[in-house]
C-alpha cells in the first residue's frame, strides 16, 4: 500500500509539471521579431575570354575542395529596433573556413567557448608546441550587428571549403 501511494504521489507531481509546461512555453514563444534564413551556394570559377571570375551556382554537385558561400539573411519584422544582434554559426565539420573569410571576422577555434580575430588565436598541438591558428582550425564564426531598425534586413556570409 505504501509503495502504491508513492507512485500515485509521483504521478501527481508529473502532472503538475506538465501543466506548468504550456504556460512557460507560451512565455518563450512570443513570436520572434527577427527571422533568419540560411542559404548555400557553390562558388564556381569560370573563365571567359581569359578572365576568371566566380559565379554562384546551386550546389547540385559538391566535391572536396569546392568553395561554398553560406549566407544567413535576417529581417526585423517587429515594430521596434532589435539591438545587440549576434549571429553565431557553427561550421559544419566537413567545411573549413576559407582564408578569405577570416580577416575581420570574429571566430572561435574551440567550439564557441572563446572568440577572437583569427590572427590572435593560438593552437597547442599534441606535441605541446604552440602555433598560430589557421582558418582550417575555426569551428565557429559570429557576427554582431549593433542595431536592426524595424523593417530592416541584411545578411552575413562566410566562405567555406569542403574538406
Amino acid at each position: 500500500m505504501k509503495l502504491s501511494f508513492l507512485i500515485k504521489s509521483l504521478a501527481g507531481a508529473a502532472t503538475m509539471v506538465a501543466m506548468a509546461g504550456p504556460a512557460l512555453a507560451a512565455a518563450q514563444s512570443a513570436p520572434s521579431p527577427v527571422t533568419l534564413k540560411g542559404d548555400v551556394m557553390l562558388e564556381k570559377i569560370v573563365t571567359e575570354n581569359g578572365v576568371s571570375k566566380t559565379q554562384l551556382v546551386e550546389p547540385k554537385v559538391v566535391i572536396p575542395g569546392d568553395h561554398l558561400l553560406f549566407t544567413t539573411r535576417y529581417h526585423n519584422d517587429g515594430a521596434q529596433a532589435v539591438t545587440n544582434f549576434v549571429v553565431t554559426n557553427p561550421l559544419p565539420s566537413a567545411v573549413a573556413l576559407a582564408s578569405e573569410s577570416a580577416p575581420g571576422t570574429e571566430v572561435s577555434i574551440d567550439g564557441g567557448k572563446t572568440w577572437g580575430q583569427l590572427g590572435s588565436l593560438k593552437v597547442t598541438g599534441t606535441d605541446g608546441a604552440s602555433r598560430s591558428a589557421t582558418a582550417a582550425d575555426v569551428t565557429h564564426v559570429r557576427w554582431t550587428i549593433p542595431t536592426i531598425a524595424p523593417g530592416a534586413s541584411g545578411e552575413v556570409q562566410y566562405h567555406g571549403i569542403v574538406r
Binding site: 572568440w115 590572435s120 549593433p146 541584411g154 574538406r163
Partner: peptide, 27 residues
Amino acid sequence: PLSRAAGIAGCSLVALSVTAPLANTAH
C-alpha cells in the same frame, strides 16, 4: 560578399590558447 555583412562589434584581441586538433572528418 562580405562587404554586405554588417559591421563587427569590437572584440578584444587577446591571445587565446586551446589544445586543439579538432575532431573532424577530414581525410
